[in-house]
Nucleic acid binder design. Structure first.
Length: 414
RNA sequence: GUGGGCGUGGCCUAGCGGCUAAGGCAUCAGGCUGUGGACCUGAGGAGCGCGGGUUCGAGUCCCGUCGCCCACCCCA
């Protein structure tokens, strides 16, 4: 016991069975939901060439600059643990030539992502996201589907206190026009902005709008919203999306300052926030990335997607989600001589599909019952030898002596 | 990277600078019941994150260090 003890690396955690049942349930609900929407699972590697992320997320994004887990493998390749999900999916889409064979695909994934950040409430160095990517359609209907899907899923897990923020960040045609306007507006007051924003004015003026500092907020209060500058195509797309969400009954709030942290977004950008979460309140984020496939070496191909933080979904849960972890039968006996018989019978019960278990610590009958109780067993079957047993209903405490044969018949009916 | 808070058995918590560090939960054994849950009895388990300092004496004060938490930045 005096040996070196180890603990989880900073920002990571163990999910013990007490919690994993809930995780499992949520993942299962997600799978069922997205599959009913026609999405298929894609699994991509946990690490990729750094370049993939640098190129897609943006060279001067925070994620690339200070949050990636970058390492060299023994062959001298520079790799990174994936900090987000979209880049890998798009890479796979291109790598497998899906733009030829299945130009429109709908994928989903449930996986862990890694970012080197200082942990805090709802933020981890390894976190899990459930996400979807629909690649190959520029239709606003698919944007609406993705947003509806996310919103609907959160309804399903009974997260009611949520707000959907919606924005359009334009496209390579209209965004630069707006960015120019923004610069014109911001440059004269540049020295009044916070340090970060002074840099942002040059590198990525849109981010200034997203700054949380009071002074920056005031200074940008008069900035005209991007909507006034969207090109016709973007504007129509955005209008149609808003209209569709309205028809679907998905409430949203326009948020002209919403700029997702990743460079690749075009047109639609959205975020779903829960006020039960603390500072890191965003539980889902997503948007359209019409330039990304091309940026990563594929043909011009539009795409939309979203990612939902599993840890944050769990933190935001308002109600308990019913879990079924009960054991059907616990096998007990008070004479060690019956252990072999019990062991063989146990396997037989399991073969028949029962959730069954028994004692492996060679404990007293009393302890075995205790254990059965702890495991939430519906029944405890106490072997008496000679084919005789006692079947005890753990809920009511009612028990009866019946033959093993009778038990097997009975179990079939339960 | 910056700021603040905290660090006592598996978990939660008490502990004015001074008797062998206290309690609850959990665990284990037993009783009640051949056989669980409620109840009763009993048992095991920490030398107070780590290192140093002050002091006759430190879980209690000081310094450092590590870890955790929260917040900023940013994001799921």
């Amino acid at each position: 016991m005096s040996k070196q003890r180890y603990s989880v690396p900073r920002g990571t955690r163990d999910i013990l069975p007490a919690e994993s049942a809930l995780w499992h349930r949520i993942e299962e609900l997600f799978r069922r939901t997205v599959e009913s929407f026609g999405y298929k699972e894609i699994r991509t590697p946990t690490f990729e060439e750094v370049g993939l992320f640098a190129r897609s997320i943006g060279e001067d994004s925070d994620i690339v600059n200070k949050e990636m887990y970058v390492f060299q493998d023994r062959g001298g390749r520079t790799l990174a643990l994936r900090p987000e999900g979209t880049a890998s999916v798009v890479r796979a889409y291109i790598e497998h030539g899906l733009y030829v064979t299945q130009p429109f695909v709908k994928f989903y994934y449930i996986t862990s992502l890694f970012r080197y950040e200082r942990p805090q409430a709802g933020r981890f160095r390894e976190h899990h996201q459930m996400g979807v990517e629909a690649i190959g359609s520029g239709s606003p209907y698919i944007d609406a589907e993705v947003i509806y899907l996310a919103y609907h899923f959160l309804d399903l897990v009974r997260i009611k206190e949520k707000t959907l923020y919606l924005n359009s960040v334009g496209c390579p045609i209209c965004r630069p026009r707006y960015v120019e306007k923004l610069k014109e507006f911001l440059l004269p007051v540049r020295d009044k902005l916070c340090e970060d924003c002074q840099r942002r004015v040059i590198i990525n003026p849109l981010r200034v709008l997203d700054c949380k500092r009071e002074t920056c907020r005031e200074l940008t209060a008069q900035v005209p919203p991007i909507y006034d500058y969207l090109c016709e195509e973007c504007s129509e797309h955005f209008d149609k999306l808003k209209q569709l969400l309205g028809k679907l009954g998905v409430p949203f709030q326009l948020s002209p300052r919403l700029v997702r942290g990743l460079d690749y977004y075009t047109k639609t950008a959205f975020e779903i926030v829960s006020n039960r979460l603390g500072a890191q309140s965003s539980i889902c984020g997503g948007g359209r990335y019409d330039g990304l496939v091309e940026e990563l070496g594929g043909p011009p191909t539009p795409g939309v997607g979203m990612g939902m933080g599993l840890e944050r979904v769990i933190l935001a849960l308002e109600e308990e989600i019913p879990l079924d972890e009960k054991l059907d039968v616990f096998l007990a006996f008070d004479d060690e001589a019956l252990r072999d018989e019990a062991f063989l019978l146990l396997m037989k019960l399991r073969e028949q599909g029962w959730k069954a278990d028994m004692d492996y610590q060679h404990k007293s009958l009393k302890s075995q019952l205790r254990q059965a109780n702890r495991l939430g067993a519906k029944y405890t079957l106490i072997l008496k030898g000679n084919g005789q047993t006692v079947l005890r209903d753990m809920q009511s405490g009612v028990q009866e002596e019946i033959s093993l044969e009778e038990v097997m018949k009975r179990l079939k009916q339960i």
